[in-house]
């Protein structure tokens, strides 16, 4: 079943058209990687799917539901790990997780939170206020939230940014696990070899147009753009 379907999506900001009639499909249990130069509109596309932007024209569906009309339902199934960490500086790591899940209506037990934090490798910093976390640790915290929420649609913006080697391995591990469970993953990245370990399909956004490529092509090419 198709989990994410974008149909002729366009988006312009003020004077600038970022996306031009982009169509894209990601099936359940599939990981799709988006490449493209800076400012090509990768993030914008992700944010449209995350219901943060409205497309200027075109429409999209998440798990068969209309992306504009049925937003409240869609939001139950999706999670975005983006540039924002969504953390409150004065709350500890655990409190931040409790809050982030609590407002969604989730009730993780302390044990579940501990397991998730240990898995992403920041279990030792449970009591630390999040203002003292480094960028990589914040990213790991976001991944921990994902582990607890288990969204059917996972959107990863700059998936490997600010993660160390072990962090990348851990994230790829999680992505594989989510895909196996039937989640659809859409990610933007610049690290081709790391992406090839988990991605099933890939595409390049350039000149506001999306072009699909195979994983072999992606790895073989000297430069994608």
């Amino acid at each position: 079943m198709v989990a994410i379907r974008g149909i002729a999506l366009s988006k312009s900001f003020h004077y600038h058209q970022v996306l031009n009639e982009i169509s894209l499909e990601v099936k359940e249990g599939e990981c799709y990687a988006l490449f493209g130069p800076n400012g090509a509109g990768k993030t914008t596309l992700l944010r449209i799917f995350a219901t943060l932007h409205r497309p200027s024209s075109g429409r999209f569906e998440i798990l068969g539901r209309d992306g504009l009309g049925d937003r409240a339902k869609i939001r139950e199934d999706l999670f975005l790990i983006g540039h924002g960490s969504y953390l409150y500086d004065d709350l500890s790591v655990v409190e931040n997780i409790q809050f982030a899940l609590g407002v969604r209506g989730g009730h993780p037990t302390d044990h579940e939170i501990k397991l998730a934090l240990d898995r992403v490798g920041i279990g030792a910093f449970r009591k630390l206020k999040s203002r003292h976390l480094s960028a990589g640790m914040k990213k790991r915290l976001s991944i921990a939230k994902t582990l607890l929420i288990r969204p059917k649609i996972l959107l990863l913006d700059e998936a490997y940014a600010s993660l160390d080697e072990r962090g990348v391995v851990m994230l790829n591990d999680c992505i594989r696990e989510f895909a196996k469970e039937g989640s659809a993953i859409l990610m933007t990245t610049h690290d081709r070899s790391r992406t090839a370990e988990v991605a099933h399909r890939a595409g390049v956004i350039q000149q506001s147009v999306l072009q699909e490529i195979t994983i072999q092509e992606m790895l073989a090419a000297d430069a994608l753009f």
Binding site: F13, Y15, Q207, S208
Partner: peptide, 13 residues
């Protein structure tokens, strides 16, 4: 006009 300018801009990268 803005939209048109935007389209022109996005063609000249």
């Amino acid at each position: 006009l803005e939209a048109k300018q935007g389209r022109l801009l996005s063609e000249t990268r």
